[in-house]
């Protein structure tokens, strides 16, 4: 119920922000399309903890800022590797376990890894992530598990 309300609110706000029309006829069209989309989303089974994760709430912006910082640092490392006079990268595959984490946790974690330059998730199966890392430094940083703990905090387990 909260999810439906939140989705409706979210879609309505997006419509208002993007349309810029505030006369009655257009508002009615907007309300109609919001209701239509909410009904469709329900029929498709998209309004659940995975499709519309309101439970992350205020923790998501915090995680996002932290991730943006990590992305910036990783970018600088990859730029340095690219601009070296002689390419000295050491591409490698590493395997990391997410343990018993739920699917939302695994997906956020795997996507965060891919978003960070220098590391790309290649497989995600049974809680095991196989990652291609550009250098040993980037691989080691991932293996410290800081990002995994952050995601764990975000999705509210443990």
């Amino acid at each position: 119920m909260i999810r439906t309300a939140s989705l409706t609110l979210f879609l309505g706000a997006t419509w208002l922000l993007l349309s810029g029309h505030f006369d009655t006829k257009m508002l009615a069209f907007g309300a109609g399309s919001v209701v239509f989309v909410v009904v469709l989303a329900h029929r498709m089974g998209l309004v659940d903890a995975e499709g519309h994760p309101v439970q992350l709430s205020w923790k998501f912006p915090i995680y996002f800022i932290w991730l943006a910082w990590k992305v910036l640092l990783a970018n600088l490392i990859v730029v340095r590797e690219i601009l070296r006079r002689k390419i000295t990268v050491a591409p490698q595959l590493i395997q990391i376990s997410c343990g018993q984490a739920d699917e939302l946790h695994q997906v956020i974690y795997a996507n965060s890894i891919t978003l960070t330059p220098g590391t790309v998730t290649m497989r995600l199966q049974d809680g095991e992530v196989i990652v291609h890392a550009l250098t040993g430094e980037l691989a080691a940083d991932l293996q410290t598990g800081t990002m995994e703990q952050r995601v764990r905090k975000l999705t509210g387990e443990g």
């Binding site: 992305v71 910036l72 970018n75 990859v78 730029v79 690219i82 390419i87 990268v89 591409p91 891919t114 978003l115 960070t116 330059p117 220098g118 590391t119 790309v120 290649m122 291609h132 550009l134």
Partner: peptide
Amino acid sequence: IRLPDFYSRLHAAGIADTL
């Protein structure tokens, strides 16, 4: 162009995608 294989080149593309 400079990185050696397909997988490494994905990382370079990631720079333009993000930063």
